[in-house]
């Protein structure tokens, strides 16, 4: 564990640590866990992602925001190995926790400790919730074809993994559903399951793609609590979110993307006032729905997370499904 994560649970320490960081796109961080250079991705003639440089600070919650079509999900896909940059081999370079990931496939990225979730949840429908969880665990002896037929080799580890899974399910209020098929869960429960499953591998960094979309408002609060608790335990969090309240409430640092580029960085309370950000959102006004504009207005006066706002978020914003198309 790096020294900078010590005391990350203390907001003052976090604020102190980021105080000296320049509030500009691609600024250097005191202790970056993920560092990205020259990633571009084109679909046909459209440039979906064009990031010159980005660093993500270890041990903190970083939010990635931006209007629709800004390329957030594509950016996620690129750095987690689910997509290949058009600039591959032409200066594209990114590394996680010191290890370069330029040519690493999706599963190896996950193994290295950077685990992601998906905007459209990928619950394994015809498997039980418990089986979903068990798949998340790393280095299982029973997953080797040579050893799997001999139960004594893996039964001990299996029991440990099951206990851990039960603990996480308990925390995400899914324990009583553990023998149900994942396909029978509600959309919000699937989001929770996916997050819990990602945590089974004790990732160094977890990347959440719109974790709140579709989650029951009653659960939103506790989900936020989970994310903060993760940070406090030393996990780095990078998440894409549309809900500005959520972003303001829990993120330590905000990165704003527009038209594939990073246009601004900074703490949540100041970045929204950045002219480049306002430009980005207003410039993309035609495909931003009113909900986002409202949020933007409210975001400007730093209102605390209210129950009503959380209620509004109960139904997922319709635009949350569009981005997959661009990707």
């Amino acid at each position: 564990m790096s020294e900078t994560t010590v005391g990350m649970a203390d907001p003052a320490v976090r604020r102190q640590l980021m105080a000296d960081v320049a509030q500009e796109p691609g600024s250097a961080k005191p202790d970056s866990i993920l560092s990205v250079d020259n990633i571009t991705r084109r679909f046909g003639g459209i440039t979906a992602v064009d990031v010159n440089h980005l660093e993500v600070q270890r041990g903190m919650i970083t939010a990635l925001i931006g209007p629709n079509g800004a390329g957030k999900t594509t950016f996620f896909n690129l750095i987690t190995g689910f997509d290949k940059p058009s600039s591959a081999g032409k200066g594209a370079h990114w590394s996680f926790d010191g290890a370069t990931l330029d040519k690493t496939g999706a599963s190896a990225v996950a193994k290295s400790g950077m685990v992601r979730t998906f905007q459209l949840t990928k619950a394994l429908s015809r498997m039980t919730v418990m089986d979903n969880m068990l798949l998340g665990a790393k280095d299982q002896r029973g997953e080797s074809l040579m050893r799997c037929m001999f139960r004594p080799i893996w039964s001990g580890q299996e029991r440990e993994v099951e206990e851990k899974a039960a603990g996480l399910l308990e925390r995400f209020k899914l324990l009583e559903k553990k023998d149900d098929y994942a396909g029978s869960l509600s959309g919000g429960q699937r989001k929770l399951l996916e997050m819990a499953r990602a945590l089974m591998s004790d990732p160094k960094m977890i990347m959440l793609d719109e974790p709140m979309a579709g989650v029951n408002p009653a659960l939103t609060q506790s989900l936020l609590g989970h994310i903060q608790a993760l940070r406090d335990e030393g996990t780095t969090v990078l998440f894409v979110e549309h809900d500005m309240h959520v972003v303001q409430h829990i993120s330590d640092w905000v990165v704003v993307m527009a038209e594939g580029q990073i246009v601004a960085e900074g703490p949540a309370d100041t970045v929204m006032a950045n002219p480049a950000v306002i430009d980005a959102y207003l410039g993309a006004h035609h495909d931003t729905d009113l909900g986002d504009d409202d949020l933007l207005d409210e975001g400007a006066d730093l209102g605390p997370l209210s129950e009503t706002a959380a209620d509004e978020e109960g139904s997922p914003p319709p635009e949350s499904h569009d981005e997959g198309k661009h990707a």
């Binding site: 689910f82 496939g105 599963s107 996950a110 998906f118 990928k122 498997m127 798949l135 790393k138």
Partner: peptide, 13 residues
């Protein structure tokens, strides 16, 4: 797991 969703399996390493 592979039968259900390959990408999910990749994201789990």
């Amino acid at each position: 797991g592979v039968r259900e969703d390959e990408d999910a399996m990749r994201s789990l390493g």
